[in-house]
């Protein structure tokens, strides 16, 4: 399968007052193949959302580059980015905030088609509703008349309107109840098999990610600490952080192991060496000095750790 999206050493910094710099994304390289689903996982502040936005051209990276279908899209002007906008779309967590409350659903779905001067708008809107499992009677209604799950379906329909090759979805199910969440998770699965659209899911929920993605990339303080096949990574984590994250998920079948101590350090002033060494249960002296690079291990996986749990 050919590579659809590629990030090369992407960094994203934000200048705060007083000469401080927040490193939201600190040197991330990744690839998404056509039709593939990659998940970016991590806790709040790990830079997964910033990375997601950078991947789709919402905000240029401070350094590094993003390539879409072989062409460099980072640093392009809005105007030259426009042809790519139809080919990649974003779905946000808060479905109520991404609709204009005064526009009907029909207007909202037709809008991207009108902007890009497509023809056959009515037919296309009907097709979209079928794809996300909503009836045509919803077109005349307003966003507030729908439940969170239904609105998320409409949100996805709108993102699909222009027939994108890539969807970036930022916490697409985390605001939903479990039973509704399952419906949306299944919907993404259906869409991927029917349309072959590649997806980047951004989430903090390992169980959801395992279900939705082929590959996952675990992020900590702006960097990827581990990536690889989803089932393999979660089945036997190679990075101590992945293991800690997995252990911290409360499960019915076993008691919680002792949790990680402390909080995530500030990305304004990240620790030296391996960024996880301050909380790592197996850290050695070397971890505080030398920053580990991502390197390949078994099964096509990659881990950034001097002492990985799987080699």
């Amino acid at each position: 399968m050919s590579i659809l999206l590629e990030a090369r050493s992407v960094e994203k910094h934000y200048r705060l007052g007083g000469g401080r710099v927040l490193q939201a994304v600190a040197g991330v390289s990744l690839q998404v193949r056509r039709g593939e689903a990659l998940a970016l996982v991590g806790e709040s502040g790990c830079g997964k959302s910033t990375l997601g936005r950078t991947l789709i051209g919402l905000g240029a990276p401070t350094s590094g580059e993003v390539l879409f279908d072989g062409a460099r899209i980072s640093g392009l002007s809005d105007r030259s980015l426009r042809p790519y906008r139809a080919r990649m779309q974003m779905v946000f967590q808060d479905s109520s905030a991404s609709f204009n409350p005064r526009r009907t659903v029909g207007e909202a779905l037709a809008e991207p088609l009108k902007i890009h001067r497509r023809t056959g708008i009515v037919e296309r809107v009907h097709e979209l509703l079928d794809q996300v499992g909503m009836s045509r009677s919803v077109l005349k209604r307003y966003p507030h008349e729908f439940s969170g799950g239904q609105r998320q379906r409409l949100n996805i329909a709108r993102a699909l309107a222009l027939g994108p090759e890539l969807l970036v979805a930022d916490e697409p199910v985390s605001a939903l109840d479990v039973s509704v969440q399952a419906q949306i998770v299944n919907l993404f699965g259906d869409l991927r098999s029917q349309l072959g659209v590649a997806c980047v899911f951004i989430s903090h929920d390992l169980a959801v990610v395992r279900q939705m993605a082929d590959r996952i990339a675990v992020m900590y303080l702006g960097g990827i600490v581990e990536q690889g096949d989803g089932l393999a990574v979660l089945g036997a984590p190679a990075h101590p952080y992945t293991k800690a994250l997995l252990d911290a998920v409360p499960r019915p079948d076993r008691p919680l192991p002792p949790p990680l101590a402390g909080d995530v350090p500030s990305p304004v002033n990240p620790p030296s060496g391996c960024r996880f060494h301050t909380r790592c249960p197996i850290a050695q002296a070397r971890c505080a000095q030398e920053r580990p690079e991502l390197r390949g291990i078994t099964g096509g996986r990659e881990v950034a750790c001097h002492y990985p749990l799987v080699s």
Binding site: Q150, V178, A182, N186, A207, V208
Partner: peptide, 24 residues
């Protein structure tokens, strides 16, 4: 039963689809 079944599992084989509860 339905609520528990709708939670995606963290281990074991990955189900093709998650069981859902129809409606709202």
């Amino acid at each position: 039963q339905a609520l528990l079944a709708a939670i995606p599992p963290l281990d074991g084989p990955k189900p093709e689809r998650l069981p859902t509860i129809p409606g709202q």
